[in-house]
Design a binder for these strands. Sequence first.
DNA 1: TTGGTTTATCGTAATATTGCAATCAATTAA
DNA 2: TTAATTGATTGCAATATTACGATAAACCAA
Lengths: 101, 101
Amino acid sequence: MGFSSSLSSYSISQLEVSKVARAIGHPARIAILELLFKKDCTCNDLVSQLPLAQSTVSQHLKELRKVRLIHGLDMPPKTIYSLNKQAYSQVQVLLNSFFQC
Amino acid sequence: MGFSSSLSSYSISQLEVSKVARAIGHPARIAILELLFKKDCTCNDLVSQLPLAQSTVSQHLKELRKVRLIHGLDMPPKTIYSLNKQAYSQVQVLLNSFFQC
DNA sequence: TTGGTTTATCGTAATATTGCAATCAATTAA
DNA sequence: TTAATTGATTGCAATATTACGATAAACCAA
């Protein structure tokens, strides 16, 4: 990222909050989280409900996995994606505590 | 943004959540919000507490103003920045309702 | 008036993000 | 085996973001 050179100037919690915020900072990723909240999906399931190409959706899934908001179960050639409910509520708590004080 | 061509494919609330998430998706902007939570500041006040040039801080302030998380009171040549506490708690509610269901 | 202070904006460069088509690897179906 | 399906990855282009210095506008102090 553009600020990687002065990463150390920010606190762990500032970095953490901004990292998850950035991860959900795209409408497609919000849409993916909402769809996965309803039920587990394969990548193709998601592609058919989003205005994006398969490779693009796969990329967004990768971003969400990177911050552990979702979980991919490998069943080749399929991957079953699901919400990581634990991480999900941790993020909820994290954002809440940021906005609380 | 890169997804502006298919903006209409997303719901208002998906766009809204992702927009505020993106606004707080940078550690400098998180730091600014935290500093403004403690007390109102001028741009220079913030510059002296951040590892960034004045023009960069001004740019971040503009982003935060764009989503109305902060408020700028013009007292030329100074501008007094403060949290927009109302918008702040609206964002809190917005994110909570997203994570709730 | 002149000089200092403050902050927004402009110009520019470096980097990151987003999106797609094409392809590859791994599996299943025929 | 051969063909089809699935999804990750690669390569690439377009655009957005981040950061800085320089500058301009608006005010105050001397």
